[in-house]
Amino acid sequence: MPIGLEATAARRRRNPLDGLDPDPSVPADRIVSLVPAASEILFAIGAGGKVQAVSHACDHPPEAAQRPAASRTRLDAEGSSRAIDEDVREAVDEGEATFEVLGEVLHHAQPDLVVTQEACDVCGITPVDVRAKLARFEPGEGPELMGLHPHTLADVLDQIRQLGEATGTAEAAQRLVGALEQRIEAVEAFASDRERPTVAVLDWIDPPMAAGHWIPGMVEAAGGDPVLLDDASPSTYVEWDDVEAADPDVLLSIPCGFDARRALAEAEAVVEPDDRLPGLPRERVVALDAGAYTSRPGPRLVDGLEQIACALHGPAARQRWPEQATRVQRLG
């Protein structure tokens, strides 16, 4: 048996389907990553060569998008915020997933590790979803499952270390974490003695949803005060009256999975016709590329952190992070 397949078999024997904590003594050799952030991390820490298949949403780095897709969406991603939300609610009401795991691709990849997530049961692939597709593996020979569940920026750094341990790339993972920590500390130092604007962050626009998980903590680190949710809270539907009552200095539009132009267009379509937030200058309605920099709990969250600092602190921040400043879109 080739060395790689021998290690794969040994890893499966150590911890088959009933566990979510891979044995780091036998690094994973063949990986299916069903989480876009995990795919980004794996390639960033030098484990990209082990990735055999990815999810339909894994598009960064470009090498990840070249892997076979082991899932597909059931949503019309080109629909409006309202239409997508209605489709999601209907799927939830009927007990259906918004995506499909492709068992044939999963089995063909012959993974010893499948990476999923446990932070969102609606828009992300969970261990439960994958288990249903693993019946083709012999008992005790299926891959290990790793379910990532970050809720804060610190959790995201921890999951980078976790993936490093699972793939035999712990040193590279720690180097990446160290570099990200330095950038986070630089933003915090920059913002420490500046005025702190209040910020309402929406990770869905129609209907509005207050952004939770790691987003409030990112706003705080960038020198703002989040007004709708605290750090690590799950994202929650709100009413526009709640947003108006919070009277934010800045409205940050980051609909999950949308790029900056679409996020800004969605905000404009909802805010302008009904003259919502009349006291908020339109140049303080800001959008970022959520699909790249805020929705996915991976290394590029730190890019998003620097972009939020640029959105909140004007020319000084834009001079400090000129490349990130170009990615910030404003309504006015």
Rank of each mutant, 00 (worst) to 15 (best):
G4T: 11
R284M: 07
D18V: 05
A179Q: 15
P273N: 13
A309W: 11
G4Y: 14
A166V: 02
D203P: 12
A292K: 07
P273V: 12
R13L: 07
D259P: 10
G314N: 11
R74H: 13
L252Q: 05
A97S: 10
V270T: 06
F43K: 12
V32A: 03
R74D: 01
P197Q: 12
P150H: 02
D303A: 07
G4E: 13
E6A: 01
G103C: 02
L20C: 01
C310S: 14
L312W: 15
R183Q: 11
A290W: 05
A222T: 01
G304R: 06
R30T: 05
H108S: 10
S233G: 09
V219D: 10
V187L: 02
T152H: 14
S81I: 04
R131F: 11
Y293P: 08
P273H: 09
D275F: 11
A245R: 13
V32D: 04
R67N: 10
T326G: 08
C256D: 08
L202R: 10
P208N: 10
D225V: 10
I45T: 08
A38D: 03
E185G: 07
V199D: 13
E86K: 02
A191Q: 13
G142L: 03
V114E: 06
A265K: 15
D87C: 02
A221F: 02
H60V: 00
A77W: 12
R196Y: 14
D230P: 00
D193A: 05
F99C: 00
F43A: 07
L251S: 07
R320W: 02
P273A: 11
P16S: 07
S33D: 05
A69L: 03
A232C: 11
L331P: 14
I125K: 00
E181D: 15
A70S: 03
G314E: 15
T198I: 06
E100H: 08
F190H: 11
S81C: 02
A179E: 15
I41Q: 07
L157S: 01
G124R: 10
